[in-house]
Design a protein around this nucleic acid. Structure first.
Lengths: 209, 209
DNA sequence: GATAAATTCAAACAAATGTTTAACTTTGCG
DNA sequence: CGCAAAGTTAAACATTTGTTTGAATTTATC
């Protein structure tokens, strides 16, 4: 199916609503109203609410894979630089696409749509495999420690970042950032999150600057 | 309202269903059927589906608070020991109560029930405050580094653990644990998770054994 | 500008949902 | 026992839900 501007617009609106209310909580009427289109257009364009969700995942996830793959094979970077770049990229992406990462979080818990599930599994495993190779390369070069639990390490990166987006408001309150403009806060927290996770990875991988 | 065995039984069933299908995805009929009670009993016992959820949160969260508080004020432990115990306790609790932690995760994303939201906020902030005092104590004793971002540190603990429970199956597949009995795997992974997080905290807090 | 295809719309549809009702059964207690 | 309270039930209720329909309108093509 060719993707038109209308498709893209509805996907964006649906993304925000799914993130706010969950898949079951956001009704087709909610989405149609927010997108300013007739109720019937959702079925007309996507076939069904389920398929709308699947389109959203296919659309959003296709962009993710390529970037990581390109980074890993880049020959001009050391494993150490690759790890740091990986973290920067990940943190930036999560902060930029908070709605979608919220949806991913819920879908991983709920496990209902088999197509979404398959996409998530594919992404997760291929991601872990790629990073494993990167780590192995660093271990051959004696930059990284032996016996790294790659998935646990990745859990720490994804967990810390996603945990942050769902408790962002508490973070602001606890650290007195309430009056800071949203844009300024985002810049600040991206830097904080990145350096925090890099610090953790340094401990896990055992490298020194 | 006094809590009877029936209350407890329904709560347990509802907990598992909410974790599997989400609050909106699990219907009152689902819960009644799974609990082996008549549909009307849910309203009779709890008032409504929403209040059932609230009861679940009040019930499950009341147990959590006390334990942490008791640990923090314990005078016979050093800050270092307290941190390590805290991690052990947390990892054990998450692994033991996976269903409830899944629900908490989704509810934090979705933010609908104001009472649940209030309980979550209270827990999160009071938790952060308690740990802050513990960290401050360690800093006075020159055991921990200066300038610790307590909430980011806690995000890493909770994020790593919750991320693990939602990607457990991928972890098994990736590390060839598929044939291991579930109980054995749980023991193994609790140990792995604990030592992993302790290692991270060592890097954050800067202490040495 | 005529014709066909694509798009949009209000209305209708059937199924599912949370909740209530009112009758019935069980329990507790003097 | 007698009887009131508590517990249980099947049925009904009013909404809400995702989806479809068939007519109207717009767009594209010749």
């Amino acid at each position: 199916m060719a993707i038109s501007d209308k498709h893209i617009h509805i996907l964006k609106i649906a993304e925000d609503l799914f993130a706010d209310k969950g898949f079951d909580g956001a009704t087709v009427r909610d989405i149609a109203d927010a997108a300013g289109v007739n109720l019937a257009m959702i079925s007309y364009y996507f076939g069904s609410k389920e398929k709308l969700m699947e389109s959203l995942f296919t659309e959003r996830m296709s962009a993710m894979k390529l970037k990581v793959e390109a980074l890993i094979v880049n020959p001009s970077m050391s494993p150490y630089e690759k790890v740091e770049t990986l973290i920067d990229d990940y943190v930036n992406r999560v902060m930029e696409k908070q709605s979608f990462y919220k949806i991913m979080l819920c879908e991983q818990v709920i496990n209902k749509n088999v197509i979404v599930l398959k996409l998530l599994k594919e992404l997760k495993l291929s991601y872990a495999k790629l990073i494993s190779e990167l780590i192995a390369e660093g271990q051959r070069l004696k930059i990284f420690k032996k016996d790294i639990d790659v998935m646990l390490m990745l859990n720490t990166m994804t967990g810390t970042a996603t945990q942050f987006i769902i408790s962002k408001e508490y973070y602001k309150e606890f650290n007195n950032y309430k009056k800071m403009p949203a844009a300024e806060f985002d810049v600040l927290i991206i830097a904080k999150l990145s350096s925090h996770i890099k610090n953790l990875f340094k401990a896990i991988l055992g490298y020194e600057q």
